[in-house]
Design a protein around this nucleic acid. Structure first.
Length: 595
RNA sequence: GCCCCGUUAGCUCAGUCGGAUAGAGCGCUGGAUUCCUAAUCCAGAGGCCUCAGGUUCAAAUCCUGAACGGGGCACCA
């Protein structure tokens, strides 16, 4: 926070010089940086170097003038010029220890941004996996990312809604329903063929069994036929003819015709089951979206008004941004920023997934958010230009929509990659992963890498209970502090914060200063990770803090006899404990008091 | 062919809107426990920041090109 004050003061200093009137402050890319090297003070700025170019004056001269004009600041001890043109700021010794009073006061709110002028209303949509099967490892990364980012954005003062978009419409769901039907038939007649293009997962069988069970209960005596007996032969013949994926469409319409409302009922049943299990998996991981938006909603017309999908179609048509070709309806997305035009209504009259997405995103815009964030798998990156094109076409600001692409995750076990093909049901589900390691570790390890990086999730490491495992390392630091505080109680000594606050100057060891410095950086780290959508920064920060604490712990005895020193140290430990807690809470991970 | 992401120590990865001597963990070598949790700590070795140009007072960082790896280019979702 001192940094922003330094920047302001520097600008004031510039303005106070007549010969520098022309300088455009807004265009200056001034930075105030933390110094790694102690000899250069606490902060440094490059302002003199930047101005040197514009003013055609030496950095030294500029720096000298700036230093002279720099208004006094209670936390700044001295300001110095240093080659080749930096200005270094040295803070007074007590500056960093003051942070302990602030932490003490703000407690779990420390690190949260309180500036209200930049608060935004944000919608963040993530996971949104098709409800055609359980979540797998790839979805887990998106889930952890979206959830933690939401926490962080909230911590920075924004109002955040978390949403899951359920694709409960369209062909994939029909294939899913068909798959369940065919499994039912197969369970009742072993010789019934099952196409390889249908869903293969074990969960399909389980749904089929449930359906058969419930049909039995309803009175039909044991033997249940879903397809009318006279049609079964025909169906088996059709099944034998299936050569490619598209051939399934024949079966779907066959099933729809002959099963009538049973098809819809089974579809609804299966969807409900799958969505339920998705919600369950997510909540196990601590992911709880507060909004669930179904694609079906886009197709329903209400109060005699056209459906959302018809509405956007209509707008595009009236704007003459569509045309017919080959029996399909195309949107002229290439007029905006897309490589080619895209189909919104297929030859068979069905609208495409893209059409749904236009309507869906238009609806998001209509809900009054300042920022709309989507978390997508990196394999969808080519999809973004067409969605943005559509938003532009509808007269909406495409920049309001921001998409974060998450790279793929691979699992490592015993130093070997585990292959994860979704085909053939040979994939590892998120639930299995959480059973193998813990839900907490799952969350942490997914966040512990920036989104653009491919992630190797090392199962053995995530289970390890040693410093190799960064999560345990951090949690252990927290537990250690709790243990010390407990020991203090056992010796019948009491915490006296007032005395501690008066003796903060005793925290002058090298390790203590380092800890104080790290603690005071926490608010910046939260802000930065929020501004740049980089939750991983919190993980790295907490590792740093924990490492510094463990070093301190090994070097110095905390529970010393001298009361003043003891109380100051306790205050420091409480600060570290609080910040670890606040950080882990942002990550959605617990802070155990004993391990 | 076009587009997105990556490439930093033996391995896994950080690296501030370009800034002063490039960082951590693992692994390796050597050490630390009569004492608050050794589930820990300390020290050492280990670098052409993939390559080649360019911009700049200053490049791991920005621009151009190349190589390698992952992903994407549907009337699928």
């Amino acid at each position: 926070m001192v940094k922003s004050e330094i920047k302001k003061s520097l600008f004031k200093a510039i303005q106070s010089k007549k010969e520098w009137e022309e300088v455009n402050l807004a265009s200056l890319r001034v930075e105030i940086k933390d110094n790694k090297e102690k000899n250069f003070g606490d902060f440094s700025t490059n302002i003199a170097l930047i101005l040197a170019q514009k003013l055609k004056e030496s950095p030294k001269k500029i720096a000298d003038k700036l230093i002279k004009k720099f208004p006094p600041h209670p936390s700044i001890k001295k300001i110095e010029f240093s080659k080749p043109g930096f200005i270094n700021f040295y803070l007074i010794d007590s500056h960093y220890s003051e942070i302990l009073k602030i932490i003490k006061k703000e407690k779990e709110k420390f690190g949260l941004n309180k500036t209200k002028d930049e608060n935004k209303k944000i919608l963040i949509e993530y996971v949104s996996s098709n409800p055609t099967g359980p979540l797998h490892v790839g979805h887990g990364r998106g889930a952890a990312f979206g959830s933690v980012l939401s926490n962080i954005l909230r911590a920075s003062g924004h109002k955040v809604d978390e949403e899951y978009y359920v694709n409960d419409q369209g062909r994939q769901i029909d294939i899913l329903t068909l798959s369940v039907f065919l499994r039912c038939e197969q369970l009742l007649n072993n010789d019934f063929p099952y196409p390889k293009f249908c869903y293969q997962g074990e969960y399909i069988n389980s749904y089929a069994e449930q359906i058969i069970e419930s049909s039995k209960e309803k009175g039909s005596k044991g033997e249940v036929f879903f397809i009318p007996v006279d049609k079964r032969k025909r169906l088996i013949e059709e099944l034998k003819k299936i050569k490619k994926e598209e051939d399934l469409d024949v079966l779907i319409s066959f099933a729809r015709r002959n099963l009538e409302n049973k098809f819809i009922k089974v579809k609804e049943f299966v969807l409900e089951q799958i969505v339920h299990s998705i919600k369950l998996d997510l909540s196990k991981m601590g992911v709880n979206q507060n909004l669930w938006f179904t694609e079906t909603k886009l197709y329903k017309s209400q109060n005699k008004k056209p459906s959302l999908i018809d509405e956007v179609k209509d707008i595009l048509e009236r704007a003459k941004l569509t045309y017919e070709e080959g029996g399909a309806l195309w949107f002229k997305s290439s007029q905006f920023k897309d490589d080619k035009d895209r189909v919104i209504e297929k030859e068979n009259g069905q609208t495409t997934y893209f059409a749904s997405d236009i309507a869906y995103h238009a609806h998001k815009y209509g809900r009054g958010y300042d920022k709309i964030i989507n978390v997508w798998g990196s394999d969808h990156h080519g999809y973004l230009p067409r969605v943005k094109s559509a938003m532009s076409a509808l007269g909406l600001d495409p920049d309001k929509l921001e998409v974060i692409f998450i790279q793929f995750a691979t699992l490592i076990k015993e130093n070997k990659k585990i292959s994860m093909s979704t085909r053939g049901g040979q994939f590892i589900t998120l639930d299995e992963l959480m059973k193998e390691v813990s839900p907490e570790a799952t969350r942490f390890f997914f966040i512990n890498r920036k989104a653009e990086q491919h992630l190797s999730f090392d199962l053995d490491l995530a289970k390890k209970q040693s410093k190799d495992n960064p999560l345990y390392y951090i949690q252990y630091a927290h537990a250690r502090i709790c243990s010390i505080l407990k020991n203090l109680e056992l010796t019948k000594r009491k915490v006296n914060s007032g005395l501690g606050e008066k003796n903060l100057n005793l925290l002058n060891g090298e390790k203590e200063e380092e800890l104080l410095k790290i603690l005071s950086k926490f608010p910046e780290v939260v802000l930065k990770s929020s501004d740049n959508y980089e939750p991983h920064l919190i993980c790295y920060y907490l590792k740093d803090l924990s490492s510094s604490f463990h070093g301190y712990y090994n070097e110095e005895k905390i529970l010393v006899d001298k009361e003043e020193e003891l109380q100051a140290k306790i205050l420091l430990l409480q600060g570290v404990k609080q910040v670890i807690f606040n950080g882990l809470t942002l990550l959605g991970v617990s802070s155990p008091s004993s391990m």
